[in-house]
Design a protein around this nucleic acid. Structure first.
Lengths: 152, 152
DNA sequence: CTTATATAGTACTAAATTAGTCCCATAAGG
DNA sequence: CCTTATGGGACTAATTTAGTACTATATAAG
């Protein structure tokens, strides 16, 4: 289903929550309660996010996590990239790809293009957008080829 | 890694192969040999594709499969949709979604938008594009919000 | 009308991935 | 120095996906 992992979903949820209310830091416990995501899982996700400096962590009493940058300067794509380890729809469109079927494959270039489009889409939406409950059209695809069949 | 399943990858590969050379019909055996994908798997994928009328099947001797429409009129998005059962990055962005956490979730709208963008990207590339080995920029994102951080 | 070829459907097994949990180490404030 | 909170890593269970096999059905050719 072209799915993101639940971890990624949680990551976006947690960070959106932090973006929405602007109190400084949140402990893992507080976020778990607010979002209803199980505590150990919240903890795991925040650790991963902090390694790549998407959130800052403060240890010790009164510690916790906070966004490393302003919500407008953090994109959903960065979170996906952090928690999924990259954005690549197929093996062969990864940067370090070595597909054994490459010699027989004619569509490598197409996949690269599709991936670029997806990356672009994800890089376009910021946490600030996500936190805005009913933000409207933020971008539009301008097609330069004719599409004759629409997905229903 | 925001992956498509291998089945979907195979599906696009097989159909691209059919789009590239314009002989009429291909048996599952012939496609398996040409693409180096194991026969039973080729068979499985083609069955799925034929149920949704993306390929036509002809039974009996000298039978096989052929594209149901011209390559320019079949999009990668349709193939993904057929083999993944929909295009939805998160549970809550499916059309029939019933997410138990919805009351606590503030980002539903954002996900819907992201999904729309991805669907749009996939719906923009046709099989004819994929079969063209080095087709170049086929569309361009025009942003209406400012992106301040780029994905590296 | 019989036989060979090829798809249709479905069920099952095995492998890989992902989710979730737990434990111990480290840091810092009071 | 004790309590609170994150950091790292390892482990288990659950889910998903891939791949295979088997039986049924259709059709062309001789």
């Amino acid at each position: 289903m072209l799915r993101l992992s639940k971890l990624t979903d949680y990551g976006v949820l947690l960070m959106t929550h932090m973006a929405a209310s602007d109190s400084g830091t949140y402990s893992a416990v507080a976020l778990a309660e607010a979002t209803r995501v199980p505590l150990p899982t919240v903890s795991k996700v925040l650790k991963l996010l902090s390694r790549q400096r998407l959130v800052e962590s403060i240890r010790g009493p009164r510690g916790g996590y906070r966004l490393a940058r302003s919500p407008a300067r953090i994109t959903v794509g960065e979170i996906v990239r952090c928690l999924e380890g990259g954005i690549a729809l197929t093996e062969c469109s990864r940067d370090d790809a070595e597909c054994e079927q490459a010699p027989f494959c004619v569509s490598g270039n197409g996949w690269k293009r599709i991936n670029a489009a997806v990356r672009d889409a994800l890089g376009t939406i910021s946490l600030a957008d996500m936190a805005e409950p009913d933000f409207m059209p933020f971008f539009r695809l301008q097609r330069t080829i004719q599409v004759t069949e629409e997905l229903s």
